[in-house]
Design a protein around this nucleic acid. Sequence first.
DNA 1: CTGAAAGCGCTAACAA
DNA 2: TTGTTAGCGCTTTCAG
Lengths: 352, 352
Amino acid sequence: MNEGNKITINDVAKAAGVSKGTVDRVLHNRGEVSAKSRDRILKVIEELGYRPNFYASILASRKNYTISCIIPEFNDGEFWELTEKGIDQGREYAGRFGITINAVMYDQYDLDSFQNACAKVLASDPSGVVIAPMFRNETLKFAKELSERHVPYVYIDSKLEEDGYLAYYGMPMYQSGYLCADILTDGRDVRKVHIIRIARDKRGLSDPTVTRRTGLIDYIAEHYPDCRIENTFIDPKSREERYRKLDGMFAADPDPDKYIVMCNSRVHFVADYLRDRGIRTCRVVGFDVLDRNLSALRDGYVQALIAQHSDRQAASAITAITDYLILHTVPQKKDNYTQMDILNKYNCDYYI
Amino acid sequence: MNEGNKITINDVAKAAGVSKGTVDRVLHNRGEVSAKSRDRILKVIEELGYRPNFYASILASRKNYTISCIIPEFNDGEFWELTEKGIDQGREYAGRFGITINAVMYDQYDLDSFQNACAKVLASDPSGVVIAPMFRNETLKFAKELSERHVPYVYIDSKLEEDGYLAYYGMPMYQSGYLCADILTDGRDVRKVHIIRIARDKRGLSDPTVTRRTGLIDYIAEHYPDCRIENTFIDPKSREERYRKLDGMFAADPDPDKYIVMCNSRVHFVADYLRDRGIRTCRVVGFDVLDRNLSALRDGYVQALIAQHSDRQAASAITAITDYLILHTVPQKKDNYTQMDILNKYNCDYYI
DNA sequence: CTGAAAGCGCTAACAA
DNA sequence: TTGTTAGCGCTTTCAG
């Protein structure tokens, strides 16, 4: 039945001359077993190629595993929505093993909110944790606590430079910037690149796109040494302010053929501006498959989008913990860099 | 345990005033049950929100499901190798439910071999079938037989115009050709496009790339009405012959900046030629992530590859049948068109 | 047509 | 330290 394997715990017990209770003990490092018995049992397991039947196991042990996912809160159509979809996919998988998934959201601009989320999760005594970190120090503390409790945790989106995590699923950020620059410039004669950036009002927040921007800038330096890079900061909260800034940008340089890029998921801000101003002469590249970005892509205000399956990242994270909990397996690779998808108007409609 | 649902078959039996044996009978339409009992049980199930525990079910019923996958045979590094990897992924999933997966290969250029494969699968009385069809009529017959036996089957790679399949997973072929043309021409001043095609020696074989080529040609007609399209046929078996043909192509038109495309996975043939001849002036686009194509991409002899996750197609197919068999669920969508991935030298290393 | 009972393979007390 | 045993929730005879 179980992958064609008919050897049961009883067979092992018999062959090792012990009872199945003892076999179960060594299987789960539960209770004390004499070194002699343990060795013999382990040997028999090896020889017979015994593989436990997980269904019998799940059935017999009515454990109540629960995995908590800590991600930023979001509004409809924003980046993290896709991650939540992935959590739902993961929930379906984990649910088959009787594992409960719950999501805890935090305000990604508010440290307190993040701390609260972590504390809440810790208090709930989770069997495993998925986390999309935004605050370095606090995450480090949280990770340490989880490690000490032997609670497996996996990072999604970005990770920290510590080592205790079970796995990581995210995009290679530097390379995504490099790729982005390649698509933007596209072998053309580019003299100037405009990077549109979000003006961050709060201090102390790590900018998640800095690595990506570095990749972008490096590409330009390597392939277009004479190309200038100009940063323009816009306010995500004020449309008027944005338009003023972008008007200023266009006024400063009369060349209508601009190369514009945004390193986060908000390129729709640029697209909206271009649409309103009727400007169709720019080459614009951005990131991520928000609905608003997709429609900009379809309408030709954005030429390409670099996307990642952040749903799959979340789902993989949950799967990894589930398998760890139930099957006692660890992911093949610890660091999993997800593919970078290039979308244009001709393939975007087939993107999930 | 089971998704937070604690109601068991015993609860249902008690509430309905019958034994759990009878409940099981109505659950699986097994044996005769009086209309009265059946109605009462169904009502109780509804009211209590009873959900069977799959693990107990799998454990108790030592059924031996097996899913057969019929795909073309292949050599190392060829297209179908990736599909086989997906079958392995699917096997892992299905194995957890005690389902055996076996793969049956056929020679995609030999009708007899395909018929044999089908007959063999039929004889083995499979619980489900995954098929990558190449021969239309024979597949139609096979599908009909499966339908009559109530054996669920899913198409991968391509499908037929019948309706009995459980699901389909494959690339949108026409659109892939359209996309390919867009990437090839890339807004440039293109006067001529070279399509390199495989000379097929056998008659009566359906060319799997004809739809893709149509998409390609349509794009050119729409966007480059004055562009000429030239077909060159090469022999997959003879390197000399290929070089002769390609030499001829280059001799016929002195322009070194050629636009070259192949609609199947063999663009490495072109790349090898260009590498040997030291030609770096062409723009070349092809399909699929064979190792040889990837190295051509990295080395700059191919500018872009359009790829599909044919591994995921196979894995999804197996998952769909597994879930159908075990969970009694049908796929959300019947026709699943997988995304078209655009690969260049900057993102190909993160693919898969 | 229906109930009773014996497992499926494993876990987790409880004795010894 | 170890064996024994009573289930987990469901399927499947076998009587009746």
